[in-house]
Design a protein around this nucleic acid. Sequence first.
DNA 1: GCGATTCTGTGCACCGTTCTACGTAGAACA
DNA 2: TGTTCTACGTAGAACGGTGCACAGAATCGC
Lengths: 339, 339
Amino acid sequence: MNEAKPPPQRVTIRTVAEDAGVSVAAVSKVMRNAYGVSEALRQNVLESIERLNYRPSNAARGMRGQTYTLGVVLVGIDNPFLPQVFAGIASVANAAGYKILMGVGAAHMPMEASLIEQMIDSHMDGIVMIAAQLSGKLMEKYARQIPIAVIGHHEPLAQTFDTVNANDSHGAKLAVRALVAKGYRDIGMVSLGPHRPHDHYDVAPQREIGFASAIAEAGLGAPKIFRFDNLDDARLGKITTFLAGPDRPRALFVWSDLDGIPILNAARQMGLRVPEDLALIAYDNSPVAALPLIDLASMDQSGTRLGQLATEALLSRIGGRKEAQHVLIDPSLTIRSSF
Amino acid sequence: MNEAKPPPQRVTIRTVAEDAGVSVAAVSKVMRNAYGVSEALRQNVLESIERLNYRPSNAARGMRGQTYTLGVVLVGIDNPFLPQVFAGIASVANAAGYKILMGVGAAHMPMEASLIEQMIDSHMDGIVMIAAQLSGKLMEKYARQIPIAVIGHHEPLAQTFDTVNANDSHGAKLAVRALVAKGYRDIGMVSLGPHRPHDHYDVAPQREIGFASAIAEAGLGAPKIFRFDNLDDARLGKITTFLAGPDRPRALFVWSDLDGIPILNAARQMGLRVPEDLALIAYDNSPVAALPLIDLASMDQSGTRLGQLATEALLSRIGGRKEAQHVLIDPSLTIRSSF
DNA sequence: GCGATTCTGTGCACCGTTCTACGTAGAACA
DNA sequence: TGTTCTACGTAGAACGGTGCACAGAATCGC
């Protein structure tokens, strides 16, 4: 690590100050376009910055001020509707002069926690969490140390952080109503398994609530909800058994494309016609669902919009807002041949 | 931003030092398990750290020493074989006590450049780039400021950074040989368009080279390479026209699943039977290709392994290695019903 | 024309670490 | 017993910015 050549010296704020013939503080002010710099000085400094190709050190900035960097915590990079959400986040953040760095939580609580801690330690200015697994209590704790906005996890009572969601119970209702309108009466739901009662505010339970209420609204008796353990390797087998069984409903509302696509696959492979034998509506409207050979109807959450709203909320909180803000937008059904 | 309650004070290295009754420097040494601390002192300090739940500030660390953070630059989050690569990177990095933060370049050179700059500015210890768009020259420049390892971009002559790749030309050969072995003679290739001659070292051109050489090897005449502009909205139409045309080959080697899946879709929709009318082998072996209803044969690059190797290379370079290292691994064909 | 007020720009402490140099105690050596 | 060596710990200077208090210049009101 001992360099014989020290010429590629980093150009620091001091270099710029010297070059422009002003004080270090003046350059700092220009960088943050803070109050108290004349237009002449500003131009002078900007020229030097340009000429020397100066970029402030994030690390140093973080020690006293802002880093103008936002952290994004993902459940996993294979999540299908992530790209849209991310695009939304990036557009708002970049427009406001913020940079973005991401971390992958891998749907693993301790990992998410350590990611957040790392982002705090890197002195990021705020965090957007997408479909977090973290408990509300823990999030409240972190939110006292750094502004946080959460996408894809309802927590309407949270005081210290903001949430932005598509209205999941309403989305489920819309799906059921669409099925009912087509004449289906025997409608079941496939939800995320296993059921964890304390996750009441998570998206899957919310969709169950909407489903049950729409079923009741249509007077279709007791709601039928099925679950497949998604960690299980034998999942495909279980799905097949379920589809071949006698109590398979005529139509299925599936909580996510993640489960909807395997179910569609299994059905077609078994020779079931979709929608003649089995009607399907899933959730997320991911790109795979749109593939012509798949063509799976799916609820669209408008990921881009979610990302934008969450980032706007985060920025306004960084700006000083204290009261929590919980935004809900309406999802809409993307109609395809599967129902 | 003015807090009425300053109690949630950050616990710093000073707090720990005070609590343990030692000097700040001693604590620092323990943190970095550096030379010159007795076991007694070490235990004492570790207890205080535990008790106070101390975590060193990344930003402050970066100012003088290492941050133990690696940056990962992605082309885009929707890239199909990313999750595997990322898993490989994460496993090696975490085992070595490094954290990971990602940035998305969106296949956009200036954005990639600014990401790298940001990572340098955040004083990260090194960068893994996946399928970079950046020119080798620019990468050489950045690599002088921070250790870099590149996945999915050949640059065998680069001196200042390392590369790790699946052998793309060999992969293409394997695909062609598999088709030849099945008896196909009229074999074409769909490659990434438009053709940019200076990208000789990029993966798609490498696959073209392998394709051409395998065609020659089998004595099948001049290689036929087709391109569809992937930015074009009318792409699907062009594909359909191509497939309906008179010079459609009997078998196609497609440079990537990204193009392979739309082609398969288009073919089936037109009523072409795969493989009876058109045989297909694509590249990347992404999860979508494995879906039963898709079932597209594809070259597997072993993303996990690529990620591991690249991270190992990066760590060894951070450790002081000076000479460049260019690793090639062998891809293998995943056989499915499409050929 | 003079004091009061506003506007600019500067100097310096500070943020939380690491790193270099150095002091000290005890062990090993002569 | 005095000297050298080694291991341990410490003090204090970096690192590259930001925030604050303040001084001097410019502007203002009367």
